[in-house]
Design a protein around this nucleic acid. Structure first.
Lengths: 105, 105
DNA sequence: GGCATGGTTCGATCATACTTGAACGATCGG
DNA sequence: CCGATCGTTCAAGTATGATCGAACCATGCC
């Protein structure tokens, strides 16, 4: 799989709310999160923000991952990205739903 | 009252969620918001973040105000700061409650 | 009016985050 | 194995936000 086989996924309860909010406060990152709301996606299929260099996209994923918002795991030669709904719900109840429920900008 | 008699308070529905999230993603600003959860406060009584230059504090308030999170209105020689709970609830249901409900960092 | 009070605004400096190409790493298919 | 593929990591440049003193402004009070 591309890059290191294992990436760090923090316990969401160790992540300050402010960091979660910050991760969600960027339009491109939020677009990705909304896209993932319907289910996991291979990275290559995250078309929410098109025409973006892979390094930039990878960086967005890193911010989301380090904030505990998404999971990024290798599968074959790709990477599967998924929302950490349950973990987020346990740490910050209602937060993700409220954000996802917000009208599109 | 200090400064201009009227400050701009946007319609929260015109403020992108991302901007609201960003305003709340700073520890100092979030501390202010939490302090206001119990009711309006004169600016001088916002002690959540002590020992801060007034220009810095004023800037934090500006970011929160422009994001539609707080109201800042003159009263006598002071300024009254209040949470725009109802407006936020109407625009982004559940969001503020979820953030306020989050465990303190 | 004159002055003290409480905040905003301006401008400059500094810190943080975004962006991107290039290099590297891990896998799969022949 | 070997090359191609898909992402991550690195490093450098750029942009955006925080910080804070100084200047300014509107009010209340004498």
């Amino acid at each position: 799989m591309p890059g290191p086989s294992v990436l760090i996924h923090p316990d969401v309860r160790d992540v300050p709310v402010t960091e979660v909010l910050f991760a969600l406060s960027d339009p491109a990152r939020l677009a990705i999160v909304r896209e993932l709301a319907d289910g996991p996606l291979d990275m290559a299929d995250c078309t929410a923000v098109p025409d973006m260099p892979k390094s930039t996209r990878s960086h967005l994923m890193k911010v989301l991952r380090e904030a505990g918002v998404i999971r990024n795991e290798p599968v074959g030669r790709n990477r599967r990205i998924s929302l950490r709904r349950d973990d987020l719900e346990a740490a910050y109840p209602g937060l993700l739903d409220a954000v996802l429920g917000a009208a599109r900008d």
